[in-house]
Computed example of a mutant assay.
Amino acid sequence: MHKEQTDNNFKERLTQLRESIDNIDNNLLELINKRLEFVQDVGKLKAKEGCQVLDSTRESQIFQRLLELNKGPLNEKVLRHLFTQIMAASRQLQRPSRVTFLGPEATFTHIAAMNHFGHSVEYIPQPSIRDVFNEVEKGTCHYGVVPVENSIEGAVNHTLDLFFESELKICAEKYQPISHDLLCKGGTIHDIQKVYSHPQAFAQCRRWLQKYLPKAALKECGSTALAAQKAAKKQGTAAIASSEAAHMYQLEVVASRIEDAAKNTTRFLIIGKDEIHRTGEDKTSLMFVTSHIPGALYKVLKPIADFGLNMVKLESRPTKHENWSYFFFVDIEAHIEDESMQKTLEEMKKLCLFLKSLGSYPRANEHKGSLI
């Protein structure tokens, strides 16, 4: 009798808790739809005034406010993922967005794009970084996502070079943790005779491959996703790619996280035609050429320190127009609307043969990790 009473109490309490959860779900659904109705009104106002749909400044402020309000137990990553999807749905209501990226699907660029824009937008893969720039410049796609540097392998030079030719702006940045898995169609690690992957992935997994697959032939591909496609066609072959690629191309994960160095991260840029307003936590990217005289670079960079700004990146690339002539790329923690940044630019212009702002945008935190 006692056990029967206990069972009844358990069932009754469980029913009550589930009813409470259902009521909250109902309220959440109603509130989300109410939010989207307001979003539609915002979209009509933006359309009337000719304003851009994506407002990185506003979205950055929303995330910052919600993270400060969150007292748990909701995990920060889950919070970011939930509201990324809600804001993606909001943008789609205002104007369906097309985002292009360095493909094919399931590349780390694709993953970074989905983490930034959510799953509601239309994604268009491209075979090269130049094609990503071209599609956004033509207006075929609203935004593009391209890799710009890796914490281990360094800068993606082709991306840097294309900014000289393009009038596109950097609208946002995204840090994506990179984790490599060994994928194959079936069998065990002992059956693998050939491994496909991108050259950078091979470089990042070199010690693991020497230890566990010393006799396997390594075949380079244009992307980790293309490597997964090849591995899916034949037994005895494998790919180094993402776990997302395993799901997409019906492969099995033979070994996880085979990269040699932990905390491997790639920085991606979201490129478009929007001018992004300041948030107070911003970054500005510049591109310039100095005179070919002693001390020229020092003189150009000196105003950054003089006006109390923090330089977080400096990269050089050959101009390709004249031997031993270089473009310099610099990232500064400030917004172009800041008075200190404007004064810095005024002084730098006096000392540069060429100076171009590549955009100001909200500064991403590389330690936040993936949103999905």
Rank of each mutant, 00 (worst) to 15 (best):
K349N: 09
Y326M: 06
S360I: 01
M287E: 09
Y196T: 01
D306K: 15
K349R: 15
K283M: 09
E122I: 05
E19M: 12
M311K: 07
V121T: 08
S20I: 00
K219A: 02
P199G: 06
A245L: 05
M341P: 04
M348G: 10
F101N: 01
E259A: 13
L314S: 09
K302G: 00
M348Q: 10
F268C: 07
E315N: 11
I189E: 14
F38S: 11
S56H: 06
T107M: 09
V148R: 11
H142Q: 13
S256I: 00
T284M: 10
E322K: 13
K215L: 07
E137V: 04
V99M: 10
M341T: 11
E339T: 10
S151K: 06
K194A: 01
Q229Y: 12
K299Y: 07
N70W: 12
D161F: 13
P199W: 08
L353W: 05
N264K: 06
P104V: 00
L345P: 04
V121C: 15
N115G: 14
Q193K: 15
D338W: 03
I258Y: 12
F164V: 04
I152E: 13
T266L: 01
K368A: 03
I170S: 04
G144A: 03
N75L: 07
M341Y: 09
H321V: 00
N75T: 00
A201Q: 08
T344N: 05
D181R: 05
C352M: 03
M1V: 01
T319Y: 08
M248N: 07
L371H: 14
E149L: 09
M287N: 05
Q200T: 11
K233C: 10
P73W: 02
G72S: 07
A232K: 13
T188Y: 06
V132L: 08
A228D: 04
A227K: 05
H116A: 00
H321W: 06
G187P: 13
Q176V: 02
H180W: 15
F10G: 01
S243C: 02
F10L: 10
H277D: 06
D181P: 08
S20E: 14
T290K: 12
A228K: 02
I276R: 05
A172Q: 11
E337H: 12
E322W: 04
M348H: 03
E122K: 11
E37H: 14
P73E: 07
L17R: 13
F307T: 01
E315I: 09
D260K: 09
D260W: 13
G154H: 03
R207L: 01
G139K: 07
I129L: 05
V145M: 14
C352R: 02
Y196D: 01
W324H: 08
Y361G: 01
A239I: 02
A47N: 15
T290V: 15
L102G: 03
Q235L: 10
F163A: 00
L69T: 04
D161H: 14
D25L: 14
A225R: 02
Q85K: 11
S291I: 00
K273M: 00
S325L: 08
L226R: 14
A216C: 07
F329W: 03
P303N: 08
S20A: 13
F354V: 00
H142G: 04
G43L: 03
V78M: 12
V136P: 02
A239C: 08
E339D: 11
